[in-house]
Amino acid sequence: MTPAVEFRGVSVHFGQTCALSPLDLTVARGETLAVLGPSGSGKSTALKALAGFVRPSAGRVLLGGEDVTDLPPHRRGLGVVVQSYALFPHLRVDGNVAFGLKSRKAPRAEVTSRVAEVLDMVGMGAYAKRYPRELSGGQQQRVAIARALAIRPEVLLLDEPLSALDAALREDMVAELLRLRAELPDTTLVYVTHDQGEALALADRIAVMRDSRLVEAGPCERLYHRPSEEFTASFLGASNLIPVEVIGADGPKRVTVRLGDRELSAEPTGALADGAKVALGVRPHRVGVRAASGGGTVPARLTGVQWRGSGFRLDLELTVDGMPPSAVRAEVPTVDGLPGVGEPVGVSIPDGCPLVAVRA
């Protein structure tokens, strides 16, 4: 089946500044792809190139197999929701939602019925005659989504749509977007965000970006549990990257590594070349901390403690002979029995963590 979206070597330059390195990426019909990365990673530039808001310096953009690189935004048939909502302040809610339909010269009866349909879909049917200034931020965002859906787009683009909302409202809107996705199974969503929680909750696949380039793309579960790239491991789930030495293979899916005087079983995420620099990707909640080293633990020093409401975040410095000190973060339910900051502790690392290739 022809992909809904294709980037073929798409790059964007503004003068001497590279905003997007050559990007090759496809999105299947009905798929939700989250484009995830920190500020300045190129994720919004990629979406703008897809929407037609910026012209690629090189490469081609395809929608449903059709090359749309040279088409203006209004001829691409996309629904777009941006962070600022971009509602027209002089139009009521129903007027905002009807704007795209009227621009396409849809019959009046169709405009009326479609506006009512999508407003009900996002739970805003009772607010049709209000102005944007009379709505909360979350309500304005729902109207922006309704406006994008009104034209029945095959592809819906969302650029940081929840970043202006408070935490509780973001949770509600994620649930709302999940419901909408279930109601629109044939609509392709490209969702740009820096929030990994949103990406994991909403997406089928995640494309991780950094420094204007695509780092890695794949199904959410694989990228979270078995990332192939160092940056993916540290950014998606905040894995600790602990340098280790590979000392033997137990088969294609298990290798033995050495950390200090401990041997651990680990899961390789790709082929390991001789002499490759590797690290264990260990989630903070899987790191155990004891009052003293020994008994299968790695010696460390406690460098910081933060109470996080549901538990404590511990900053640690591993001190393994023959290796430089390694910073590690742990999440634990209690600090009862642990010494104070600056004191030695023992750190336990479980078997089965993924191995991640580390850049030289």
Results as ranks from 00 to 15, higher is better:
F7A: 06
R8F: 06
T17S: 11
T17A: 13
C18L: 13
P22Q: 05
T32F: 09
L33D: 00
P38Q: 06
P38H: 07
G40C: 10
S44T: 13
T45R: 00
L50G: 08
V61N: 03
D67S: 11
R75E: 14
G77Y: 03
V80M: 12
Q83Y: 02
S84P: 04
R104A: 14
A106D: 06
R108H: 09
E110L: 15
T112N: 13
S113E: 14
V115Q: 03
E117A: 12
L119M: 07
L119V: 05
K129V: 12
R130C: 09
L135W: 05
Q141S: 07
A150M: 04
P153A: 08
L158F: 13
D159Y: 10
P161R: 06
D166E: 06
A167N: 05
D172Q: 15
E176P: 08
L189Y: 13
V192E: 04
D195H: 08
Q196S: 07
G197T: 12
L200D: 02
A203N: 07
I206K: 13
I206F: 04
E221M: 07
S228K: 14
G237N: 03
L241M: 03
V244S: 00
V255T: 06
T256F: 01
L264N: 00
E267V: 11
P268Y: 07
D274L: 15
A276Q: 10
R283K: 13
T297Q: 00
R301E: 15
G304E: 15
W307A: 14
R308S: 15
G311H: 04
D315G: 15
D315R: 12
E317D: 13
A327F: 00
V328P: 01
R329H: 06
V341D: 02
D351K: 00
P354Q: 05
